[in-house]
């Protein structure tokens, strides 16, 4: 058995230093080691997107990234999205539009949608549907998810994911968002 390797990464603004098995997946580091169980596992073929988080500002499927590959990165999970009691516009919109039922796909869906809106702040329905192609939902038929993403897009900063805490740029974004007010 190979010996553990050290990993240092910032998750939702907190820096963690851990020793991990080289084969440990990022999703299991988040869930089992850090207790961040909002990222879910729904498949073993990178198909469902339930595990989607942001690594250095880009959506990735955390079941397909080794923890060691995330060494030195800034990770944002669903738990890092709201600022205190203030929900992110996407969270607000998913709630308002009934964009979830069992909720299992939801964290990944929201993180994927945030990435989509960061790249395309004003997407058409078609673009939303294609942008979420990597995330499966069995409950909603996608109808209200698409509606939620399109409603959230009306908010000026819906694509922005705060990474508050020790990184200066994260703190700045967090503060800015808080000042703007996030209500969708």
């Amino acid at each position: 058995m190979s010996s553990n390797v050290p990993v240092r990464l910032s998750v939702n603004g907190r820096v963690h230093e851990l020793d991990v098995e080289p084969r440990l997946l990022l999703v299991h580091l988040l869930r089992d080691r850090l207790g961040l169980t909002g990222s879910h596992v729904g498949c073993d073929t990178t198909s469902c997107g339930a595990c989607t988080v942001h690594v250095d500002g880009e959506a990735v499927k955390s079941c397909t990234v080794l923890a060691v590959q995330a060494d030195g990165t800034k990770v944002t999970t669903i738990e890092g999205l709201a600022q205190g009691d203030q929900l992110h516009p996407l969270q607000e919109a998913f709630w308002e539009d009934h964009g979830l039922q069992c909720g299992y796909c939801t964290p990944g869906m929201i993180m994927a949608a945030a990435d989509l809106l960061a790249r395309n702040p004003d997407p058409t329905e078609e673009e939303i549907r294609h942008g979420l192609e990597g995330n499966l939902c069995r409950c909603t038929g996608y109808h209200n998810i698409v509606r939620a993403v399109s409603d959230a897009a009306k908010h000026p900063h819906a694509g922005r994911i705060p990474h508050p805490g020790p990184t200066p740029e994260g703190a700045a974004i967090g503060l800015e968002l808080a000042r703007e007010g996030l209500g969708a």
Binding site: R31, L36, T37, G38, S39, H40, V41, T77, I78, E79, L81, A82, L87, Q91, F94, W95, E96, H98, L100, G103, Y104, T106, P107, I110
Partner: peptide, 17 residues
């Protein structure tokens, strides 16, 4: 709007795993 959603959209829900 659903009462169950706040925990689900913030990643605070508790599934078996």
């Amino acid at each position: 709007k659903r009462k169950e959603d706040p925990r689900l959209i913030t990643g605070r829900a508790t599934y078996v795993d």
